[in-house]
Design a protein around this nucleic acid. Structure first.
Length: 307
DNA sequence: AAGACGAAAGTGGTTGA
DNA sequence: TCAACAACTTTCGTCTT
C-alpha cells in the first residue's frame, strides 16, 4: 500500500509525496513532515480487498450465494430414520451402515452451511463497519476471530448478527488499542449506542476476556495529532499525565478528560494557544470537564505557567 | 467580543439491596 | 427491579483579557 500511496496523493501540509500508512492508528502520515494526511480517505482497498478475498474464499467453499435458504424452502433432502427401503423391506447390515454414514454427513454439511452463512454475513458487516471507521487490518481480523468465538459460545442465538458483529468490532478495537469510542463504532454500524454497549458487555462477560483499560496517554496522542500540536507539547502532556497518575489524580475519572486537561496545561506552558473548547471538542467531551480536570490537576501539581 | 470560570440542574450508567 | 450515587453534560450568568 505504501507504494500505491506514493505519487498518487500529496501531503496537504508540505506537498510531499512520500506518504506512509500507520498500521496502528489506520492513519496516513506524511514521511517528510509527519502531518497526518487523512484517517479516512485512502483506506479504500486494503481492508476491503483482504476482506473480499476471505469472503470470496468462504463463499467459494460453500458454493452458493449467501441468500441460499435450503432449510426453509423445502429443497433439501431428508434421509428417513427407518432402516427400510422404498418398498418397506428391511435393509441388510451393509446398507444400514451406509445410510447411517449418509445421515451423519448430511447433518454435518447442513450445520456447516448455516454456520458459514452466518459467518459470511457477519464478516461483511464487520467489513463495512471497519471500513467506515478506517480500521487497520489487524483489528478487522481480530474482530472476525472474536465473532467466531461468539458464535461458538452460542451468543448470536436470538440476537441479530449485525449487533453482535458491531460489538465484536468495538472489542477488537479495545484489544488492539485502537482508539474508537463505543459511540463511533455504534454509529458506523448504524445501531444505537445502548444496543452496542449491551452486546459488548455480553461479549466481555461470556468470552471472559480481560479488557485492557484505555491508556489515557494514547488519548493524548490522538488529541495532539488532531490539533496539530508540536511533539514537545505531546511529550510534556505525557509527563504531566505521569505526575498526575502518581498522585492518584486520575483514578475514577474518564480518560478523555484527564488527557484533555494534560494537553491543555501543556499547551499553556508551551505557549501554543488552544482554547478549552477546542480541546474539549477534539477529545469529545465538554469544556466543563476539561476545566474541572484542569482545576484538579493544577491544584495539586505545581507548574510554571507563563501568562 | 471571546474565552475562562463556576453554579445548578439534568443525563446515562453502575451498584447494591 | 429500583433507588442511590458518581461522573459527566447542559445551560446560563459572570468575570477577565
Amino acid at each position: 500500500l505504501a507504494e500505491k500511496l506514493e505519487g498518487r496523493l500529496r501531503c496537504s501540509e508540505c506537498g510531499g509525496t512520500r506518504l506512509l500508512r500507520d498500521d496502528e492508528s489506520g492513519e496516513v502520515v506524511c514521511r517528510s513532515c509527519g502531518f497526518v494526511v487523512s484517517s479516512t480517505i485512502l483506506n479504500r482497498g486494503s481492508e476491503w480487498r483482504a476482506f473480499d478475498f476471505e469472503e470470496r474464499d468462504k463463499l467459494a467453499r460453500v458454493g452458493a450465494p449467501a441468500t441460499w435458504t435450503i432449510n426453509d424452502m423445502g429443497l433439501s433432502t431428508t434421509i428417513g430414520w427407518q432402516d427400510v427401503d422404498a418398498s418397506g423391506k428391511r435393509l441388510g447390515p451393509d446398507e444400514r451402515a451406509r445410510l447411517s454414514r449418509l445421515r451423519k454427513w448430511q447433518r454435518r454439511s447442513k450445520m456447516s452451511d448455516s454456520y458459514q452463512r452466518n459467518l459470511s454475513e457477519a464478516l461483511s458487516e464487520i467489513g463495512k463497519v471497519s471500513y467506515s471507521l478506517s480500521l487497520p487490518r489487524n483489528v478487522v481480523e481480530t474482530s472476525s476471530v472474536i465473532y467466531r468465538r461468539a458464535v461458538k459460545s452460542q451468543l448470536v442465538r436470538g440476537r441479530t448478527i449485525k449487533n453482535i458483529a458491531v460489538a465484536c468490532v468495538y472489542m477488537a478495537c479495545r484489544q488492539c488499542c485502537v482508539l474508537r469510542s463505543l459511540g463511533e463504532v455504534a454509529e458506523a454500524g448504524d445501531i444505537s449506542r445502548k444496543e452496542a454497549a449491551r452486546n459488548y458487555r455480553l461479549l466481555v462477560n461470556a468470552l471472559d476476556a480481560p479488557m485492557p483499560q484505555v491508556d489515557p496517554q494514547s488519548y493524548i496522542s490522538k488529541i495532539v495529532n488532531k490539533l496539530r500540536l508540536r511533539g514537545e507539547t505531546e511529550r510534556l502532556a505525557k509527563i504531566i499525565f505521569n505526575a498526575a497518575s502518581e498522585l492518584k489524580l486520575t483514578l475514577g475519572r474518564g480518560p478523555q478528560g484527564i488527557a484533555a486537561a494534560c494537553v491543555y496545561i501543556s499547551c499553556k506552558i508551551m505557549g501554543e494557544d488552544r482554547t478549552q473548547s477546542q480541546i474539549a471538542m477534539t477529545a469529545q467531551i465538554t469544556e466543563v470537564t476539561v476545566r474541572n480536570r484542569y482545576k484538579e490537576l493544577t491544584r495539586q501539581l505545581t507548574f510554571n505557567i507563563p501568562l
